[in-house]
């Protein structure tokens, strides 16, 4: 099953190992920042949006470096990332709808 076609892999950079560790420290840093902010900031919508933003940043690093997306041909990221717009649409609408449910209850 596993014979690859004549694929010219877009080679990862030579210092891949260093990149991996760098990414690890970045992810760890963001997680610590998350926890720090959790205790520092007051609970409100702005804080939630900040957390989601930080989550997306972390996702970018995991997908980009760990899952090798940064080094693939540009069409693959388009193929995989574009449909996520639908999820954002669904989540936005459902949060509005959830709020409406609490309003009519």
């Amino acid at each position: 099953m596993e014979h690859t076609e004549h694929l010219e892999h877009t080679e990862p950079p030579k210092d891949m190992k260093a990149q991996i560790w760098k990414t690890f420290w970045i992810l760890l840093g963001f997680t610590i920042v998350d926890i720090g902010l959790y205790f520092i900031l007051p609970s409100n919508m702005g804080k939630n949006i900040l957390f989601i933003f930080l989550g997306v940043v972390k996702a970018y690093f995991i997908v980009g470096v760990f899952m090798h997306m940064k080094f693939e041909r540009k069409w693959l990221p388009y193929l995989i990332v574009t449909p996520m717009v639908l999820v954002i649409y669904l989540i936005t609408l459902m949060i509005i709808e959830g709020g409406y449910t609490s309003f009519v209850r």
């Binding site: 669904l90 989540i91 459902m94 949060i95 709808e97 959830g98 709020g99 449910t101 609490s102 209850r105």
Partner: peptide, 12 residues
């Protein structure tokens, strides 16, 4: 997660 968001917001 959508179900979570919906239900969580319905407790707002």
């Amino acid at each position: 997660l959508v179900a979570y968001g919906f239900i969580r917001y319905s407790f707002h």
